[in-house]
Design a binder for these strands. Structure first.
Lengths: 125, 125
DNA sequence: CTTGCCTCTGACGTCAGTGTCAGGTTCTAG
DNA sequence: CTAGAACCTGACACTGACGTCAGAGGCAAG
C-alpha cells in the first residue's frame, strides 16, 4: 500500500510516517518513481511505534530497542535488551508518579465538593 | 527566604521559580532592591506546582485550576472545578494508556527472555 | 573597600515530534 | 489528454518548560 493508506489505517499523519522512516524506525520499498510502498505488516509496525512513543520513548531509544522486537534472540545486542528493561522500569516509575498526582487531584476535588455541599446546605436555593 | 533557598528546598531551579511567577502561579514579595522573598508556605506551593506539571498540566491549565486550591469554595469558578475534574479524567486515561504500553514492553521482555533461555539451554556454555 | 556569592532582567537556545507551505512529479478517473 | 488527488523533497514554524549567557546590582564577611 502507499503512504496515504498506511497513514489512514494506522491512524497517524503522512508526515509522521516519513519522519519514522527518517529516524530508521520504518522501512519502505520505493517504486521506480520514488513513491513509498508498504506491506500489510507495516500497519502493526506503525501501531507498535505509536505505542512506544506513547510510553515516552524517544525515536532514538525506540531505534535502540527495536532489535528486540524484530529479532528476539540471544544474539540481539544485550544492550538493546537492557535498554528495554530500563525503559519498562522508567515507565513504571512514571506511572507511579502519575498515580500520586491523580490522588492529589482526587483530594482536591473531594475538598471542593465538600465546600460546595456545605455552602449549598447553608444557603438553600 | 530568597529564591535560591526556595529552589533548593523545593528541588527546582531558580529559573523555574521565576518562570512560575511569570506564569502567575507563584507570588513573591520584593525587597526594596527588587529581590524576591517567599514565606515558608512557598515550598509546598512549589511542590504542588511540580506535581501538577508532572501530571502533564500546562502552565495555563494549572493557572486555571489553582483557584480550587487557593480558595476551595462554591464561589470558586465552576469552570475551574470542571477543568480540574477534566484533568483528572485525562490523567486517568493517560495512565491507562501507559499501562497498556508497559504490558506490551513486559510481553516483549518475556519473549526475549524465552529466546535467550532457549538458546542458552541449547548451547550450554 | 573588596571579594565572592546571590539576585535581577532580558533574551536567545534547546528538544522532538509534528504541522505546514512551496514547488514539482506521479497516478487515476473520465 | 486533462483535472485533481496523492506523492515527493526540503525547510521553516510551533509548542513549552526550561537552560544558559550577558551585563548589572545587592549583600554578608574580612
Amino acid at each position: 500500500m502507499r503512504i496515504g493508506e498506511l497513514a489512514r489505517r494506522a491512524g497517524v499523519s503522512v508526515r509522521s510516517l516519513r519522519y519514522y522512516e527518517e529516524q530508521g524506525l520504518l522501512e519502505s520499498e520505493r517504486s521506480s518513481s520514488g513513491q513509498r510502498h508498504y506491506p500489510e505488516a507495516a500497519v502493526d509496525r506503525v501501531i507498535l511505534l505509536q505505542r512506544l512513543y506513547a510510553g515516552g520513548l524517544s525515536s532514538r531509544t525506540i531505534g535502540e530497542v527495536l532489535p528486540c522486537v524484530d529479532r528476539p534472540s540471544a544474539d540481539t545486542s544485550e544492550a538493546a535488551f537492557e535498554m528495554m528493561v530500563g525503559e519498562r522500569d522508567r515507565l513504571s516509575a512514571h506511572i507511579e508518579d502519575l498515580l500520586r498526582t491523580r490522588d492529589m487531584l482526587d483530594d482536591l476535588i473531594a475538598t471542593n465538593r465538600r465546600h460546595n455541599a456545605t455552602l449549598e446546605a447553608g444557603s438553600t436555593g
